[in-house]
């Protein structure tokens, strides 16, 4: 899509290394952004005339990890997390997908959640969506004003949408598995 190409030119000019990749052959074209640059890129995407992505539709977290070693050796990716932002513009009726790649654990230390700056200040939608991604996928959103679980109970252990998640044996006397 040529429309998305012009996004990319504009963004590359502005952020240089902050934009690490793109794919315009995909069904939904996407650009990849460095975690540190995400807030600035989002602010720019929202306010720049001609882009005006005034609505954040969805934030999703995707865990790329095989629990099965056989499958892991065949996979064409290293284990990682992807945070996917689906943006659209009500004024200009166009859409864009922004992706951020994160390690599964911060600095490779198992159990320490990876960090990404929060975009809550850019779109208020991000408030609850980031809480949900934290709750289910396990990503720390730095700068989020109300960083709590949203769907699971506050004392829940683990992040269910991780591929290696295991249901707890017991929760307050209720058998888990």
């Amino acid at each position: 899509m040529s429309e998305s190409n012009s996004f990319l030119d504009k963004l590359k000019k502005k952020f240089g290394d902050g934009i690490t990749g793109s794919n315009f052959d995909a069904i939904d074209p996407w650009i990849e952004v460095k975690p540190e640059a995400i807030v600035d890129v989002c602010k720019y995407l929202k306010t720049e005339p001609g882009l005006q992505f005034d609505m954040l539709n969805c934030i999703s977290g995707v865990d790329y990890f095989h629990t099965d070693e056989k499958k892991a050796s065949k996979a064409d990716w290293e284990p990682h997390l992807e945070i996917v932002y689906h943006l659209s513009s009500i004024a200009l009726k166009h859409t864009l997908v922004v992706k951020v790649m994160l390690p599964r654990w911060k600095d490779g230390q198992e159990g320490v959640l990876p960090e990404i700056p929060s975009v809550e200040k850019v779109w208020r939608t991000a408030d609850w969506h980031e809480r949900e991604v934290f709750d289910l996928v396990g990503v720390q959103f730095v700068g989020h004003p109300d960083h709590r679980r949203i769907l699971c109970p506050e004392d829940w252990v683990g992040h269910p949408l991780r591929r290696d998640y295991e249901m707890p044996l017991e929760y307050h006397g209720i058998r888990g598995r």
């Binding site: 005034d54 609505m55 954040l56 539709n57 009500i90 779109w123 208020r124 939608t125």
Partner: peptide, 10 residues
């Protein structure tokens, strides 16, 4: 709810 607020909250 203003239009801007509605859009901001998605």
């Amino acid at each position: 709810m203003s239009a801007d607020m509605a859009i901001d909250y998605g």
